[in-house]
């Protein structure tokens, strides 16, 4: 099956669950920002969770299908139309040869995930089909999609017939008025004064305009004060500078103590800014569903709480698998 891109939207790229193992070279894991949503979309059409689909930021693409197939749309919430007929997200959608898929404005969340029965067939690069635009690798020619592109899918291995399954509302990404992001303080946390550390968790932040696959910047909180020091050799004079070092995914750097930046799937692997902690793995998906201006509260957690949240996340995924395998 092939489909043609009629309109590409703002930023649509091929993504699977990423390529771990090359971060030490500055090639990030990449993959879907909201891993849960891509995994579920794949399961809905009978794919392996790691099959390559499309990630669309803010607005979905308009696609024309060459032959009949099954697709599913997850992630944020947007009206989905097939030849003008509205369909629901989070359940399989049957497509007939020659039909056109298009989207209305996203109502909730920030990213849509489209899975196609069989998964998108682009070459694997370093074990993954994910697009990494900075390195011009993976996906379709290492770039976001543009109008006129034609993509091919693999033959679907499972004989999927349209089923009346849907993922319950409560299991979908919960984007509330103020989204909580759990943070384990650490890394260079000691560089902040006690008061500055308290302010970080007390203040309400908002997603800034610089919010992409590499990282999310947050604005609106108070500037942070530092513990005084003599700059260590090689670090740089600014109190937020460190001797350049490796950055964890999800780590929160605060250049000049001003605006926190959380590194995401296409993170730069290293740099010279101190970090005050890390958003826990269970909450990384949520960041991918935040639009600019969305309010955020950072919540301080312990390692035990982080591991507990990880178990809850995994249990939710297990429950989806069970629901769809019935």
């Amino acid at each position: 099956m092939t489909f043609k891109v009629i309109e590409a939207g703002i930023s649509v790229s091929v993504q699977d669950l990423g390529r771990p193992g090359y971060y030490q070279l500055g090639i990030p894991q990449g993959g879907a920002m909201d891993r849960f949503s891509l995994s579920v979309a794949n399961l809905l059409v009978g794919n392996n969770e790691n099959a390559a689909g499309l990630e669309a930021a803010y607005i979905g693409p308009k696609l024309h299908f060459s032959s009949s197939t099954m697709i599913a749309v997850t992630g944020g919430d947007a009206p989905v139309f097939v030849d003008g007929v509205e369909h629901e997200c989070w359940r399989p959608i049957e497509i007939k040869a020659g039909q056109v898929l298009e989207f209305g404005f996203i109502k909730n969340g920030a990213r849509l995930y489209l899975a196609f029965a069989g998964g998108i067939n682009v070459p694997e690069v370093l074990g993954s089909r994910s697009t990494y635009t900075v390195g011009i690798l993976g996906g379709l020619e290492g770039r976001v999609l543009k109008s006129g592109d034609v993509l091919e899918t693999f033959q679907s291995e499972s004989q999927v017939t349209i089923r009346d399954v849907s993922i319950p509302e409560a299991m979908r990404p919960q984007i509330t008025q103020v989204t909580s992001l759990k943070v384990l303080p650490g890394l260079y946390w000691h560089r902040l004064t006690e008061a500055a550390g308290e302010k970080f968790f007390a203040d309400e932040w908002a997603v800034g305009t610089e919010a992409d696959r590499m990282g999310y910047r947050f604005t609106g909180g108070r500037p942070m004060e530092f513990v005084e020091r003599t700059p260590p050799f090689g670090a740089g004079a600014d109190p937020s500078n460190i001797v350049d070092s490796a950055y964890p995914y999800g780590s929160i750097q605060v250049p000049a103590g001003q605006e926190p930046i959380v590194l995401h799937r296409d993170a730069v692997s290293a740099g010279g800014y101190f970090q005050i902690g890390t958003v826990i793995s269970a909450d990384m998906d949520l960041i991918g569903q935040l639009q600019p201006n969305k309010k955020v509260q950072f919540i301080k957690v312990s390692m035990d709480e982080a591991l507990k949240a990880r178990s809850v996340y995994q249990a939710k995924m297990a429950q989806v698998r069970e629901t769809l395998n019935r």
Partner: peptide
């Protein structure tokens, strides 16, 4: 040593650069 979330461990040999 300091944990970077539930998936990373940062090991800082020294604050300043040296061979």
């Amino acid at each position: 040593f300091s944990f970077g979330g539930d998936e990373h461990l940062l090991c800082e040999c020294s604050e300043e650069m040296s061979l």
